[in-house]
Design a protein around this nucleic acid. Structure first.
Lengths: 181, 208
DNA sequence: ATATTACTTTTAAAAGC
DNA sequence: GCTTTAAAAAGTAATAT
């Protein structure tokens, strides 16, 4: 997820009238919703000229999407000056440790965690360095969120794997199906 | 310093007023849930800590009381779902859950991961099942834990399925519907857990 | 009775209520 | 705090067939 800053104000009403497939209901939300099909992302565009772009799978995809969004705006007669400033605010990733995790044991031994199976099946671990939040599942699969750089994600995965192994919370998976690509 | 004393006294009185109201709520909800005095006392202790840390500001006393009750039940190993507690408040489960997470993060109250066996006891009692059924269900839960079948699963659903299996083995059959209802889960969940437990633990149910 | 679809959790930002 | 957007994980719930 990233924010994009265009150093200018935008007339959302004019955009709503001229651009097709746009959602804009200021009573419901101050941003205009723009969905791009290729790359598939969604942008929330505000009258300040700032936008929020979600759904991009990589930095390259994000940059391409922002260029296309601006190209589309221009195509419909919206004047855009200067180049957009793109800032990645949050990276959400998933990973697979390929081991089973003993969540009961991990919940007891890890420090900043919350494991409430009646509420959610994953153990929520707040890591200090890098500062990310991990949702760890017994299957060994996980979600990493809160990172601003890609290297924080890989560092977090390595750290949690080492920590879980060190605490003896991992067990090899018996039934290995595994892909044959 | 008069000023300092005055401010302190004012804060204390506001805490006192908040506590007085909270204790009434705690008594009301606690009685509706038939909670033993020990659990209500524990909840009161947790709530007092919360007020003293100023965690109730901007939140309804009722939902924080409900969250404290839930935390107390967990600590005392009394099986109660968040929904059962939230139903007696104007707040919904989501709001009470939010307060509960706040208590866990901000207070030094450690809450153990809930044990499906605590739900086994409660479900068996509510359905009037024998101690033998209860014992077998608890054994099934232990085996399930050993086989890693419980991680991430709702303890109430696991307990419901274990009770269902045990009731069949002891010829004290209860329907999945009856069990699901008192456990606070759906029949589909009982059925899914039942299938997994019987298959993975190789439990054969005498066909009748 | 099973198959979809939808919601639970986490994260971040935008402008305004 | 709320509103809106997206995405993944695995479990459960609600609704459809």
């Amino acid at each position: 997820m990233a924010t994009v800053t265009l150093e200018q104000s935008l007339d959302l009403y004019a955009m709503e009238r001229s651009i097709p497939n746009i959602e804009y209901d200021p009573d419901q939300f101050p941003g205009l919703i723009f969905r791009l099909e290729q790359p598939k992302v969604t942008a929330l565009i505000f009258k300040s000229g700032k936008m929020v772009v979600t759904g991009a799978k990589s930095t390259e995809e994000l940059i391409k999407a922002v260029k296309r969004i601006i190209k589309t705006l221009k195509k419909y007669g919206i004047k855009i000056m200067g180049k957009p400033k793109i800032q990645i605010q949050n990276i959400v990733a998933s990973a697979n440790l390929h081991v089973n995790v003993n969540l009961d044991k991990a919940a007891f031994l890890l420090e900043n965690n919350m494991y409430e199976p009646e509420q959610f099946p994953g153990l929520i671990f707040r890591m200090d360095d890098p500062r990310v939040v991990l949702l760890i599942f017994s299957s060994g699969k996980m979600v990493i969120t809160g990172a601003k750089r890609e290297d924080e994600v890989s560092k977090a995965v390595k750290r949690i794997f080492d920590k879980l192994a060190e605490l003896d919370c991992v067990k090899p998976i018996e039934e290995e199906e595994e892909l044959e690509l | 310093r008069w000023r300092k004393w005055q401010i302190r006294a004012r804060i204390q009185s506001s805490i006192d007023r908040n506590l007085a109201q909270a204790m009434n709520e705690l008594e009301r909800i606690g009685n509706l849930l038939n909670l033993p005095k020990s659990v209500k006392d524990e909840a009161a202790l947790i709530y007092r800590k919360a007020v003293e840390k100023g965690l109730v500001r901007g939140r309804s006393i009722e939902s924080v009381v409900a969250a404290a009750i839930y935390a107390a039940c967990r600590r005392m190993k009394l099986a109660r779902t968040l929904d059962e507690i939230a139903q007696y408040t104007k707040a919904n489960r989501k709001e009470v859950a939010r307060c509960y997470r706040l208590l866990l993060r901000e207070l030094d109250v450690s809450v153990p991961v809930s044990d499906p066996k605590d739900y086994v006891t409660r479900i068996a009692n509510l359905l009037g099942l024998s101690g033998a059924v209860m014992k077998t269900a608890a054994e099934i839960i232990d085996k399930a834990k050993g086989s890693g079948l419980t991680a991430g699963k709702d303890p109430a659903g696991l307990a419901a399925a274990a009770i269902y299996i045990a009731s069949l083995l002891h010829d004290e059959r209860r329907t999945q519907k009856e069990i699901a209802q008192v456990a606070g889960v759906t029949e589909v969940t009982v059925r899914n857990r039942y299938k997994e437990l019987t298959q993975e633990l190789k439990i054969s149910i005498p066909t009748q």
